[in-house]
Structure formats: C-alpha cells, structure tokens
Design a protein around this nucleic acid. Structure first.
Lengths: 273, 273
DNA sequence: CTAACTTGTTTCTTTGACAATACAACTTGT
DNA sequence: ACAAGTTGTATTGTCAAAGAAACAAGTTAG
C-alpha cells in the first residue's frame, strides 16, 4: 500500500520526535550553520542510537519545514537562512524583556482571567496570606501574528482593582500598575528552562516537549510589598536574554557585573556581525 | 514475565508523556497543592481519555520523582513540598554563574581537549579568520558529585598557549586567562533554552530531550579582540540565573536596569522566605 | 569508468505503547 | 461487618512505531 505523504508538523513517534527536536535546536541556535552538510543518515542513526528509518522520519519533517534540503547522492544541507531573519528581529534588549518599546509591535491574546487563590510559592513570594486571592491572568504575546511568549501574572486583588480586563489585553502590566499609582521598587528575576506541556505547546504553536526559556519575576513596591508575580515561558528561537558584562574589582573580589547603559551599543555591534 | 520496574526520568510513550507533563505542570506551578488528593486512576483515565494503564505509567514516574505519594486503598497525594528545598540548594548568584566562590565546592571533568577549527558562528563572534584554529575544550562541572553543567570553551590558539591541559581541569578559565596577562574587557552573554542531545544527556545524567538552560558568552579583551567563547548548558533543576532589578528613568524612558551590588541581600531575602 | 559515498524505496519482523478486563489487597466511612 | 472506594497485578489483544536488511538511483572523488 502506498504511504500517504503527510507533511506533518511533528514526528509522531517518541524517538523520531526527539531526534527532530534535537536537530531543530541545533539549527535554530546556530550550532549547525547554514549550508553545512549534515552527517549521512546512517551516521546520524549511529550517533543517536536509532535506526535509519527513524532518522528519516525526523529529517522528513525538517525538510517539509524548509530547515534542511536533501539531495540524492549528495547529502543533506542546512537551510537556516530563511529562519535567521525572523529570529534576529526579536532578539531582545538587555535585561528588559517584553517591554515598552516593543509594546507597539506586539499584540497580546488573553487566554484566561480570574480571581483565585494563587499557588503557594507565588503567595509566599508576594507575601500574601494563605487565604488571600489574586488576579490571575494568562496571556500570549505575538509578534507579527507569531506567538512567542506565554505569560501568567499574579496580582494581589487589592491592587488589581485599578484596571479592566480589557486593559490587560492591550497594555503591558507595568504601565497599568504605574498608572494606578503603584510605586514600583525592586524586582527580582530568575531565569531557567523547562519543557512545553500540552497547553503551552498549543498556545505557542510548538511541538510538545520543546525547550522553553522560563522566567519568574517578583516585583515589589517601595515598601517591599509584592505587587506582581510574573511567570513567563518564551520560545528560545524567538527570544533570548542578552546581557553585556564587565569585569570589575581587584584580587579576590574580582567578578562580573552587568554593564548598564551599554545595551544599545552592544546590540548594534552584534547586528553588524 | 515480570515487568522491570525502571525508574525512568520520563515516560516513553506519547500519551503517557502527555499526562505526565500535564500533571507535572499542575503540581509544580501550584494548581495542585501539596497534600491534595488526586482523583482516582479510573477517574483520571476518563478525563484524559486514555486507559488506566497509561495513567499509571505517568503516575509511576511522578512517584519515582517524589512528586506524588501513592497509598493502596487510600489514594494518591501530591508532595510538592520536597522539590522546593532541593531546588533552592543550588540556586546561584546574580550574574556570575560558575564562578570563583563556588570554584572550590565544585569539581570539573575534562571530556575533550583539542586544537581545531571552531564552528563558523564561534569564529565570527571571536573575530577569527576562516582558517584560524582554536583550543576547544569540553568540561562537565559537578557539585557534590552531581553533574550540573556542560561547558564548551573556545580560545584562540595564540592565547591558549599559556596554560596546560591540566590547569583546565581544575581552575576556571578566567583565572587562567588573567594569570596569562590577558586584559579582560567586556563580555556579552546570551541566555536561552535548548534540549539535551545524546552526548549532553549522558554527561549530565539526564534523559535525552530534557530542557536545559543555554548560555553563550563572548569575552573580549580591552582592545576588542575575542579571547573566549563559552557555550554552556545547565540543568535547570540545579541552576538558575538570578538577577535583581530596579526601575529607573522617567516618563517614556522609564525601564528596568540590573541592580548591582545587591545580590547578597537579595539572595538572603529569598532564603528567608 | 570505478569505487565509495549519498538519499530514496520497499519489505518484513520485532518491539512496545495502549486498551480492555478481571481480580486481589487495602482503606475508609457508614 | 459491609459497601464502596482506592491502588496493585496479571492477562490478553491490537496496532503503530521502530528496527533491520536489501536494493535502486543519484553524486562525487579518484
């Protein structure tokens, strides 16, 4: 029987998907450069410890997506050029992801909105009592109609009174908070990585099990009260955290520190290369 | 035949993994609180539209990881408390991962060491000519005999003459470079996420396809010449990038900036909570 | 041209995930 | 004690994914 040539967006099987995701990552983050020739299918099968059929399943999808170009007898070439344009377009500034400047070129889609009891660790971080509620909103931000971040924000109910559900869909939360007279003091960010679960994968138009950049941020006002907890998941192929550093101090105390105010220069330098 | 009770780090099958990831997410982000009793396996099977066997496969892994506790006749309880402790144990300092301070409590294992031509994007970042070689070293850093980072460093051959292969296994690269008289100027870091490939997964004792924090760093000397390119992959459960922020500026120019010198206070605050 | 590579295609086998079902062992509330 | 819940275990069957092997067809270096 003839096999239907399905141009799937994702390999079905577990092994095939792993290979696919691994190669996809290597291509999109530059470990495999444009024009580079991949090792042969047999070679790949050995390094991944799977059969050649499985490798082919993964390559078929990559090929259908235009990330590679296969040529009989010659080999398989990486075509990452098409992607990289899109990608550089949204490489972000220093330590301020999803911000004012891009607030105009991006749109947000509000997925859910409710007043509930936040998870323990959120309540703890914000300094909320065990029974206190918070406004919990889940949004997806899009750039050029492509979703790139999945955000969940927690704001104490008391503070969240000052703006509408509609505001959230359009304006960044900071604007809203500052407009409400909240005196923003310090914030603390924590960056890590995690996998895309079913809901997130669908919302971001990604394969389940894709790698995501995970960011958690606690914002406090000048009195030290928690005013916002942000939990963000970002597509690594469309978002990265850039930070210029300088080496300061002497002797034993010598260490790295973020170089502030140099963001623009540094980005410009990168763009040139 | 008796089924071998493998304590896998991730369910093999597609459906089982779906269930696993969904529950894992719900537990770790607090939708399922500590101590809460899950619906019965039969009930879960219905809500997820899979068979009970599949549910059990997912629960087995969650159980092996200590996220849930099953009791015959009684039910299954969520144990999310245990996680948070371990996690905090190795949460690192501000903008200086793998650094001097921890240089003593960690060890490194040298996996490979050679002088070759670096990948294009590395050569480009370092400003190397097309044919210039670099010293390429791959190391795994361990904390308490547990591997947590997989590092690949590229140093132009010219600069790399000043230390031995043995030095690399023990000392951080910065120490070596500065000892060699290199005047370190600026650096630029880029943080993202990616998946664990076969080699990395094995080196870090992880399942293939696990999420990893990915860090790329270009270091230049005072004259702007590239002296080091670091590509690091970190286990997200043992490593996260912490950064305190402050909001500065007025009006339209208002934005976030890293708060320097406050790392210790901020960490202490977090530890207390 | 030849030898040694590559990808493309086919066929068959084997493995393993999944479903459905039944039953045992245990706990809890009535 | 009993009924109704829970998890644990075993059996059987189905089917898609994966593996293995052979071969065709194209490319390239010598």
């Amino acid at each position: 029987m003839l096999e239907v040539a399905r141009s799937a967006t994702l390999p079905e099987g577990a092994k095939a998907r792993r290979v696919y995701l691994s190669l996809y990552d290597q291509i999109t983050d530059g470990r495999l450069c444009d024009g580079e020739i991949l090792p042969g299918e047999q070679k790949l099968a050995e390094t991944y410890c799977v059969s050649r059929v499985t490798i082919r399943r993964a390559l078929d999808v990559l090929s259908a997506r235009g990330l590679i170009e296969k040529r009989v007898g010659s080999g398989t070439r990486v075509r990452s050029k098409a992607m990289s344009d899109k990608r550089a377009a949204l490489t972000f500034n220093t330590l301020m992801p999803q911000l004012v400047e891009m607030g105009q070129s991006t749109t947000a889609r509000l997925l859910s909105f409710s007043y509930r009891q936040p998870p323990d660790y959120v309540a703890q971080a914000l300094g909320l009592g065990a029974a206190e509620n918070a406004q919990i909103a889940t949004r997806v931000r899009l750039a050029n109609a492509v979703p790139f971040s999945y955000l969940t924000t927690y704001v104490p109910t008391q503070i969240a009174q000052n703006y509408s559900e509609n505001d959230l869909a359009t304006m960044p939360l900071f604007k809203l908070l500052e407009r409400s007279g909240v005196q923003i003091g310090a914030a603390h960010q924590s960056v890590s990585a995690s996998l895309a679960g079913p809901e997130v994968a669908e919302a971001l138009n990604l394969a389940e099990g894709s790698a995501l950049l995970s960011l958690k941020r606690v914002v406090r006002d000048v009195d030290g009260n928690g005013v916002e907890f942000l939990s963000g998941l970002y597509r690594p192929d469309m978002f990265s955290l850039e930070m210029p550093l300088t080496r300061v101090g002497d002797g034993v105390g010598r260490h790295w520190e973020p170089a502030i105010g140099q963001a623009d220069q540094d980005l410009a330098k990168q763009a040139r290369s």
